[in-house]
Design a protein around this nucleic acid. Sequence first.
DNA 1: GTCGTTCGCAAACATCGTTCGCGAACAACA
DNA 2: TGTTGTTCGCGAACGATGTTTGCGAACGAC
Lengths: 223, 223
Amino acid sequence: MAGQQDPVIWLRPEQAAVGRPAERSRAEITAAAVELADREGLEAVSMRRVAAALGTGAASLYRYVATRDDLLDLMTDSTAAEYHLPAPSGDWQSDLLGIADQARQIMRRHPWLPTLVITRPTLGPHGVDLLEHLLDVLAEHPAAPARKLEAFAVLNALTALYVQNEEAAADPGAQRQSAYLRHVATAGTHPRITALLAATPPEGKPHDRFPTVLARAMAGVLG
Amino acid sequence: MAGQQDPVIWLRPEQAAVGRPAERSRAEITAAAVELADREGLEAVSMRRVAAALGTGAASLYRYVATRDDLLDLMTDSTAAEYHLPAPSGDWQSDLLGIADQARQIMRRHPWLPTLVITRPTLGPHGVDLLEHLLDVLAEHPAAPARKLEAFAVLNALTALYVQNEEAAADPGAQRQSAYLRHVATAGTHPRITALLAATPPEGKPHDRFPTVLARAMAGVLG
DNA sequence: GTCGTTCGCAAACATCGTTCGCGAACAACA
DNA sequence: TGTTGTTCGCGAACGATGTTTGCGAACGAC
């Protein structure tokens, strides 16, 4: 008589009020999925493999989660619990950069996170805590509320993009990525690309543009 | 004796030099896939459905493409052919915004594009043409070559993010996205979120932050 | 014609997300 | 101490996916 109630998992009760109690919890399943993803990547997170890691059957997971996407949302939100959120310092600029730096470290710990953050942005309990903190940091800022929400989204997404690029560059198959570009440079058409690849990279280690880019983007969002 | 040769599709010859000639072309298959994606979304682009749209069998597509991801790359690059690239005006700032505006329109025409651009950035022949043009626009700019490449990446990704958000907001299920946020606002914990959702949106239509954000982000990248 | 090669594609394989159905387990109540 | 109402665990099955295999047919070159 009772179909699926709420389309968003955070509003569904984890445990039924009556009947046989569950043997596991959402947190337990989420932890197993996160560990699997950390070790073997997002595509390894299939219902069967997560269930196997828990020593149970695949169908059992559907007592805790309506769909695989729900599980992915749980994974994303669980990483938001890794933030350390100190009281605002009064300098919102640097507080924001501090949050972004933490986001970066968390995403480096979980290489699958950037993809999830970008493709299915989700706000669960921990994500909401983070948003509340960001609003606290920006409390004195005169920007309209909608702008602050947009700033939150841009901060997350831009950080995810940069970490994703980091990973792609560190990948052993990074040469494959640029193989065609080098081919074009050699071919001679596209003189600017040829010149670009011929230019020797500057001495010393390349400066990390992330803080600057993020700061300016945030300034653009907040007006 | 000859296994798969080159891992990147742009360097593999489309037609074998000898033997029975192919009945179709990469362009033809790509066009069918793009049309299918435009009409029914990315998840509808399966090998079987694309093949069916062409009146052929699924296995036949593998004569043109090594994997499904190759097909997605072809789709992405094919949209880069839709740019109109006039000669640089001398004002690189506005030229860049012009490119970004075209990117936005192209992505709106192909709602599946932002996801692909973000999750598997690819440079095929048409993408390379676009890059060459952007380097032309930035020819007088003193930034290091690596920065200009980064600017290209940020321009594409940031545009994709904004269009993706546009689509999500226009989605009839947008209420579902924010259902939990409204719940938290009502609950009373998280006072800043409560205040934020209670605040009445400003009069008039909201100003589009995209050009500003992009311009500042680019300034941050190019130093 | 003959030969070397490629093409088209039905069938099969492994894997996926998800649903069905039912015995077993538990809480509450008699 | 049953009995009852409900949920839980999960083997088995369904439909769909990407990809491989195998081979007859089609073609260019000689």
